[in-house]
Design a protein around this nucleic acid. Structure first.
Length: 553
RNA sequence: UGCCCGAUAGUAUAAAGGUAGUACAACGGUUUUUGGUACCGUUUGUCUAGGUUCGAAUCCUGGUCGGGCAACCA
């Protein structure tokens, strides 16, 4: 595809490492904690890690970083796997940090044996108090100089379950005065009498992230361990552990995480939206989760393209939602069949078309596809639904659609001229009367008439009903995290608009659950998972670009 | 106030001391049986002050601004 593209800084490092012979095989890993659903930010990391080994050879492991039994669930493991597969990636090995609990325990014992770890009976408060501050050094714990033998004994008793949660911890003995707070004798094991989703009740002590991640990378001989920027200060500890344990030296590299405008990305906040019923679930089509985007109608291709275009760097960023929308429009434009659906119907009567006459017109499914997507038949009659907004009693300047006396083409059908319209008591237009020009039929037009506007329609007699859910951005401000107060104060009250009865052409009655459609002139839509053959429900993935409303608001 | 990371159009991202480029966005135009697509064009940029150099976005020094670090979370 893109031959001459410049490399991001990680690719540069990798090419150097590969060219210098430092590594023969590139090994990366994607290490989610199974405590929530994957989101578009994870997609960036997934595309990076899997993309690198796809490009340079080698492989990528999927490793569930499951060292905290109280937050993790099998449900999340399953959804995360499904999402990665859906995105189009295959991992080499399915691994779990919990697979290494025995090895990790051994590493801890080794550290104690070297006099580099000790059991601390201080309370959490005491530990915090002695930690110091960024500007003041910390102070040694009174338990810091216990003997190796005592520590070994205590640690084995921790494992044996002799102590209650919080009674003590295992700490690395590093430097309480380190300018890097992370290095001030970090806790590396804590007691949790909790059931783990994989190891059950086998363990009551669990390693901390800092004592599990680098070691796991090392065990798997991960060459490039890629994570986000907030782990920069952890790298010193990552390297320290590997050095002291004398194990395979995996290397950590950090890049800036994705921030996307008009949404939030933290699992905590997303969970809050789910729990408080702001959205219907993790896969609500407004959620930035992979499952939400999938349900919304986004394609794996478009998400991969997006991740490719945003690039990899180390500076904080806020990507505009419009880029994601561009990517999905670009893909769907080439792949989605065009259909006609009227979302806000008003009746159009063709007064000179026989009431008992019907025609089957031919519609090209996708002019952008190489094979044009084939054709379909569209029934036509004298009574049609058209879009209410396609008629203006008093037309604006440069109005190309219907208005008294104006002519437009009905897509795939005839040119019609607006002769009259009917209003109800409140003054709302209820019906539009037109005459059609028989010799203007699509494909065999001999009328010689040129019209500026083409509108979509559905024959009232043949139309099917459907519910249409129109989604918009979840938040009304670019950066809900950056605003004053609670992020939920900035929810977009119009993030969903439900149209209970829209009219769709009969072709859509047999819509494919996995297919995406372009509702001509409106946007891209797909069937929602709640849809049934009796009650069709479509989700709007994204609207079409609209130069008219934009320029005339 | 300590340590660490960073700073290039509105937003992202390139330019490994030598023409500041690309994409999205915005704006204008051409084509069009989707006011879509496609195509063409326009606007907008190196945080700042010094230094090194024939030449600095790039190297050095100071400053400014943004972010991270003081969970028995990851």
């Amino acid at each position: 595809m893109s031959e001459e593209r410049s490399l991001n800084f990680i690719e540069e490092i990798i090419e150097n490492d590969l060219n210098s012979g430092k590594y023969e095989t590139l090994i990366t890993r994607f290490p989610p904690e199974p405590n929530g659903y994957l989101h578009i930010g994870h997609a960036k990391a997934i595309c990076l890690n899997f993309g690198l080994t796809k490009k340079y050879g080698g492989y990528t492991n999927l490793r569930f970083d499951d060292t905290n039994p109280t937050t993790e669930k099998t449900e999340y493991v399953d959804s995360q796997q499904a999402d990665i597969k859906w995105l189009g990636f295959e991992w080499k090995n399915e691994l779990y940090t919990s697979d290494y609990f025995d090895l990790l325990y051994g590493f801890a014992v080794k550290l104690i044996g070297k006099g580099l770890a000790y059991v601390d009976h201080s309370t959490a408060e005491d530990i915090a108090a002695l930690k110091g501050t960024p500007t003041e050094p910390g102070k040694d714990s009174p338990y810091r100089n216990r003997s190796i033998e005592e520590n070994l004994d205590l640690f084995s008793r921790m494992k044996a379950g002799e102590f209650a949660d919080g009674a003590c911890t295992l700490r690395a003995k590093i430097d309480m005065a380190s300018p890097n707070m992370i290095m001030r004798d970090p806790i590396i094991y804590r007691i949790k009498h909790a059931e783990h989703h994989r190891t059950g009740n086998q363990w009551c002590i669990y390693p901390m992230y800092d004592f599990a991640h680098g070691q796991s990378d090392s065990i798997e001989h991960v060459t490039h361990s890629i994570c986000t920027l907030e782990y920069v200060s952890h790298r010193e500890l990552y390297d320290w552990c590997i050095e002291k344990l004398e194990i395979y030296p995996s290397k950590q590299y950090e890049f800036a995480r994705l921030n996307l405008s008009y949404t939030v990305m933290s699992k905590r906040k997303l969970l809050q939206l789910v729990n408080e019923g702001v959205v219907t679930g993790w896969d609500d089509p407004r959620m930035p989760t992979i499952s939400g985007l999938r349900r919304r109608g986004y394609t794996p291709e478009s998400i991969r393209e997006f991740c490719d275009r945003i690039g990899i760097a180390k500076r904080e960023n806020l990507i505009e939602l419009s880029l994601l929308e561009f990517c999905v429009r670009e893909h769907l434009n080439k792949t989605a069949n065009r259909v006609m659906a009227v979302l806000d119907p008003i009746k159009l009567v063709i007064t000179n078309y026989p009431a008992d006459k019907e025609e089957l017109l031919i519609g090209e499914n996708n002019p952008e596809a190489e094979d044009k997507g084939g054709n379909r038949e569209i029934p036509f009659s004298n009574e049609l639904w058209i879009e209410r907004e396609d008629f203006m009693e008093e037309p604006a300047k440069k109005w190309f659609r219907l208005a008294p006396g104006a002519v437009v083409r009905l897509k795939h059908a005839y040119i019609v001229k607006c002769e009259d319209f009917v209003k109800d008591a409140e003054g709302n237009v209820t019906e539009i009367h037109c005459t059609y020009i028989p010799e203007s039929k699509s494909g065999e037009d001999t009328s010689g008439i040129n019209v500026k506007g083409t509108i979509h329609w559905v024959s009232t007699r043949h139309a099917k009903s459907a519910e249409v859910r129109m989604y918009d951005r979840l938040f009304s401000v670019e950066s809900p995290d950056g605003e004053e107060g609670d992020f939920k104060d900035y929810l977009n009250p119009n993030s969903i608009e439900i149209i209970k009865q829209a009219y769709i052409e009969p072709y859509l009655a047999t819509a494919d659950a996995d297919a995406r459609y372009q509702f001509i002139r409106k946007g891209y839509y797909c069937l929602d998972k709640d849809s049934t053959s009796e009650h069709l429900i479509f989700n709007r993935t994204v609207s079409l670009k609209d130069a008219w409303t934009k320029g005339n608001k």
